[in-house]
């Protein structure tokens, strides 16, 4: 039954296109396109030098209603603590099991309740992004042991650390990083996050905080001007 459904659909397509299965030469051409995955039109906002890209990333992220704090490499814990204070958030946080986020509770301000997936009532989550995308002010999060996908979605407040050297230009750079990251297919869930969750479903009035986080705070780590591979 399943097989016959498959053949029905595929044969329907071929009949409509007035041909049989694609020929060997066409197949090679199509598989070549898949293997080369050529880029198409890349907008100018996706290109630029390091400083321009970081500046654009910040501007676009802020335009999407995220906040951005730029800190030195050793300033992450203090920046999280500062966010918690300024936004009156609980000092108990759920933190992704990423070694780069190991010392958040070192100075005693924060209590790390959990490493890994959040509990449904965790209000603050902290994760580390794979990359930032300057074109759109987007954070790219890839699921894996160090980055639970539910942490991006369940807590009311999501704090994301991203390195300045990981700020890419456009989506094309993001896809490349993703391919470099994965040996065995893509990670199960790749989130491209641009601002907090929102809805306009009631009279087209924009409301932040629909089902995902109400607030998104980005901590941009200035990890040296020379490290960027652009």
């Amino acid at each position: 039954m399943a097989d016959s459904s498959r053949e029905t659909v595929l044969n329907g397509i071929r009949t409509a296109l007035r041909r049989g299965p694609v020929s060997e030469s066409v197949r090679r051409e199509l598989d070549g396109r898949l293997a080369d995955h050529p880029a198409s039109v890349v907008p100018s906002i996706a290109r630029g030098g390091r400083d321009a890209l970081v500046a654009r990333f910040i501007a676009q992220a802020e335009a999407s209603a995220a906040t951005v704090a730029r800190v030195a490499p050793d300033g992450v814990a203090a920046a999280v603590a500062d966010l918690v204070r300024r936004h009156n958030l609980p000092a108990r946080v759920a933190v992704a099991a990423d070694p780069r986020l190991d010392d958040l509770d070192a100075d005693g301000v924060l209590t790390v309740d959990r490493r890994g997936t959040p509990a449904p009532d965790d209000l603050v989550g902290v994760s580390h992004a794979v990359a930032g995308i300057a074109e759109t002010g987007t954070l790219m999060m890839a699921s894996g042991p160090a980055s639970p996908s539910t942490l991006n979605m369940l807590p009311d407040t999501h704090i994301v650390v991203v390195r300045a050297t990981d700020v890419a230009g456009g989506l094309e750079d993001a896809w490349d990083r993703l391919r470099a990251l994965s040996t065995d297919g893509l990670p199960r869930t790749v989130h491209f996050i641009t601002g907090p969750s929102r809805t306009g479903d009631i009279e087209q009035t924009l409301q932040l905080g629909a089902h995902g986080p109400r607030r998104l705070h980005v901590i941009l780590v200035d990890d040296g001007p020379d490290a960027l591979g652009q």
Binding site: Q60, S143, P145, R188, T189, V190, G212
Partner: peptide
């Protein structure tokens, strides 16, 4: 919008060492 809040790329079921999904 320039980009919607979430663009999600989902590939297969969770991997053995994934904490969720």
């Amino acid at each position: 919008q320039i980009m919607s809040s979430y663009t999600t790329v989902s590939t297969g079921p969770r991997r053995p060492d994934d904490p969720d999904g």
